[in-house]
Design a protein around this nucleic acid. Sequence first.
DNA 1: GTCTATAATTGGATAGAC
DNA 2: GTCTATCCAATTATAGAC
Lengths: 189, 189
Amino acid sequence: MFLADGYGAASMDAIAREAGVSKQTIYNRFGSKEALFGAIIRRRCDDLLSPLSPPECGSGDVKEVLTSLARKFTTMILSPTSLSLYRVLIGEASHLPQLAAIAYQSGPALAAETLASYLWAQSCSGVLEVASPRLAAEQFFGMLAGQKQLQALLGLSDEFSDDHLEDAIDTAVASFLRAHRSDSERRRD
Amino acid sequence: MFLADGYGAASMDAIAREAGVSKQTIYNRFGSKEALFGAIIRRRCDDLLSPLSPPECGSGDVKEVLTSLARKFTTMILSPTSLSLYRVLIGEASHLPQLAAIAYQSGPALAAETLASYLWAQSCSGVLEVASPRLAAEQFFGMLAGQKQLQALLGLSDEFSDDHLEDAIDTAVASFLRAHRSDSERRRD
DNA sequence: GTCTATAATTGGATAGAC
DNA sequence: GTCTATCCAATTATAGAC
């Protein structure tokens, strides 16, 4: 209910009713509305973190790795779960700054670090030319989801067609490769 | 107060006190809390729209035009005004969907359309190779601000150093040009 | 530990004098 | 048109029985 209606609009009465227990039971277990909210958000952040773990750095060629990572990222960042989580955290950001930090670290920041280390490795082995891996990683992910995520957060289009997303992913990967493939690699084409 | 505290947390009592008038005066003029909020948001959207108007399509070389547009976009999208506006709209998105649509049209969507038509023109004249101008424009802006805007919306870093932003802009422009400059133009380098 | 009933406060909105 | 004072509903949180 926090994620669906926002922190302010969700009342403890309604939550207790939905949970099938009395309010007092909730207060005994969590102490306050804010503490309950924190517990829920923390759990959701953990859930968010898990599917992004496989770095799969060594396997396959660059294009496949980037495409696979891009799919995972867009799926995660545009999932209803993630969207409602960010929506409520943004709305309540000034009120609960620590939770927002945890969510960011668990999602986009982790993804950027993973990709950055991959780019660094590929840069060392001469396949790619990436001056600043961390910046390039952030811009790659931004290219994929930046505008769409904002649209979705504003509630303007809750769902995107898979075709459209696949097109965006392919275009982004192609752009990234044209921009960062090293000259020696390019000559092979 | 709506922008600073959010819709729910801002009380009509506090607003009236801050405005130096009585509550009844506000209700006479606007009718309800929601209508007052709508009026304020609409005005803020108009303010947001104004500085983005100059398309400046014909002048200068491509790199300069892109850099200039990128600067305007990042400045707008990361300004405290814009951030607080989006923050409150995202928080209240499900409650007031029309306002969110107006804000998006007035900002990112307009910017993307402007750039897309410029890219299309440059593509016709053979300077750039852009298969889908609209998608390329969205991805260019996403590259610039996507991650930073999310960070700022979450309240994780309200201000970014100018050096850092300039670096991000230069990198993004360079990547975009390497990815989309036509082969004939590239040969001239 | 859990439920019912109840504070105590606060919010949006209104009535009536001037 | 504006202010003072007030209504009514909803909300968080607690007290006390079982």
